[in-house]
């Protein structure tokens, strides 16, 4: 696979997503967006659905974006981005990059239909899901991307039911099933991996999907300074796998530490205990989640082997 590694040291100085935005202190999505814009440059058009980024990136008349910016509604990021791209093409501005920046709720749930349609049509856009594992803009409600056991305001740690009862929806695999040119997972805590994938996705044609793990300290009940530390732990424990799927081939880019039996070496408990949203979990629940992570890791490995 062709890949020119892009590191922090390759990034330009200028911010195309400026300070003054109103994200919570320690916001993972803000880290992603600010640096992604350095990769994309000025010849870019941005669409955001209704999400935290819509609000913290611009409240009329002040806006952090320094490139064309558009919003229509919540569930149509993929199709509005595609509409922009097609219209740019129709007006001879085909060289511009169009990026849709949606959250996990706007992608895994309400935006899934438009996303699937745009992917199937292989629309020439870059779709980035910043995954903070719940509806944060409305105040921390569960989404399809919320992990098992997590507290949210709609999966409270009640007397009978404690946290979310279902597992995280695997959107990247759904996107791979669409047979699009590029699908990748990334994390704010792995800058070189993230920037390299952003650069690659920027330069490709057709539908590109990137899902970036983006800590939400407010919603996860994590001190803001731990934003990056938590994100690292997610990869180390196998809760989040960094891989990419390019033209039919899948590669796991960062392999977590394994024990002598080939199992994940760092227990998921190490990840859970950093976050208030998992505080209520029982040993049985943690065991259930550990089992799920083990199986997911094996499946990721098997998929990598199968997709060569």
């Amino acid at each position: 696979m062709s890949s020119t590694k892009i590191t922090i040291h390759d990034l330009p100085k200028e911010n195309l997503f400026t300070g003054g935005h109103t994200a919570c202190p320690g916001c993972g999505a803000a880290i992603l967006v600010r640096n992604a814009m350095k990769v994309f440059g000025k010849n870019t058009v941005i669409y955001t659905p209704a999400n935290c980024l819509l609000v913290f990136g611009g409240t009329y008349p002040n806006i952090s974006w320094k490139v064309p910016y558009h919003h229509v509604a919540f569930e149509n990021t993929a199709v509005c981005s595609a509409g922009i791209k097609r219209a740019l093409k129709a007006s001879g501005k085909d060289d511009a990059l169009v990026v849709g920046f949606a959250g996990d709720g706007g992608t895994a749930d309400i935006g899934m239909q438009a996303l699937s349609g745009a992917a199937e049509r292989n629309e020439d856009i870059l779709y980035i899901m910043y995954d903070n594992e719940a509806y944060m803009n409305t105040g921390i409600q569960r989404s399809g991307s919320t992990p098992y056991g997590a507290w949210t305001t709609t999966t409270p740690a009640g007397k009978v039911i404690k946290g979310k009862e279902r597992f995280k929806k695997d959107v990247p695999q759904i996107m791979i099933a669409h047979n699009v040119p590029y699908v990748a997972t990334a994390s704010i805590a792995y800058p070189t991996d993230l920037l390299t994938k952003l650069e690659k996705a920027k330069n490709m044609k057709g539908f590109r999907y990137l899902q970036v793990y983006s800590t939400c300290p407010t919603g996860w009940r994590v001190p803001p300074e731990k934003t990056v530390e938590v994100a690292k732990k997610a990869v180390e424990t196998g809760m989040w796998t960094l891989y990419e799927y390019e033209n039919g081939k899948m590669t796991i880019n960062v392999k977590p530490k394994l024990d002598e039996n080939g199992n994940l070496a760092v227990p998921v408990r190490d990840y859970l205990k950093m976050q208030g949203r998992f505080r209520h979990m029982t040993d049985a629940q943690i065991e259930t989640l550990q089992k799920w992570v083990n199986e997911k890791w094996k499946r990721d490995l098997a998929l990598e082997k199968a997709l060569q």
Partner: peptide
């Protein structure tokens, strides 16, 4: 239509794209 351009100057400071720098967080 409420559309705003890049760093538009007004008596009350910048508005538009890139003008959130006015908000000293």
């Amino acid at each position: 239509g409420g559309a705003l351009g890049l760093e538009v100057k007004t008596d009350a400071g910048l508005i538009g794209l890139g003008s959130f720098v006015e908000n000293k967080t």
